[in-house]
């Protein structure tokens, strides 16, 4: 092994550490672990809600306004115009694998980056 071999090896080790650090920083800065609820109207994202902030929101549904409430890290449809009011009857949702679907209003609310319901039979822990 000559001095050029050693220089090459040192170069590779240093650049690999540098590359790893840069990529780690890039991934951390571009991805977020913030829990958000995404509201879709006809598969189109219309609202992104921070689940940490207790607030009320109103979105346009197919049959009228849909009132959404966030409190204590949970989300619900407070009231809406529909024949059976199924999504407001569903009540509070806090798990990422349980969506709220207001079919007559074509509104779907899905929590992202949140925890999963441990009682759900499809969850592998």
């Amino acid at each position: 092994m000559n001095k050029y071999d050693k220089a090459l090896m040192i170069f590779i080790v240093v650049t690999s550490v540098f590359m790893y650090g840069t990529l780690e920083w890039f991934v951390r800065s571009t991805t977020s672990d913030q829990v958000v609820a995404v509201v879709y109207y006809e598969d189109r994202e219309v609202l992104r809600i921070d689940m940490k902030e207790d607030r009320n929101y109103v979105v346009d549904g197919a049959l009228g306004d849909v009132f959404i409430e966030v409190a204590g890290g949970r989300i619900r449809v407070e009231k809406e115009t529909s024949p059976y009011h199924l999504c407001s009857i569903q009540g509070w949702v806090q798990y990422a694998n349980i969506p709220i679907v207001c079919l007559p209003n074509k509104i779907v609310i899905i929590i992202q980056n949140g925890t999963l319901n441990p009682d759900d039979p499809d969850v592998i822990s």
């Binding site: 090896m9 590779i12 080790v13 650049t15 690999s16 550490v17 590359m19 790893y20």
Partner: peptide, 17 residues
């Protein structure tokens, strides 16, 4: 997929040796 590169790049030193 470039996320895999530092590890492959680094591993070339012991494996290449």
């Amino acid at each position: 997929m470039i996320y895999w590169l530092p590890m492959l790049w680094f591993s070339s030193v012991p494996t290449g040796y």
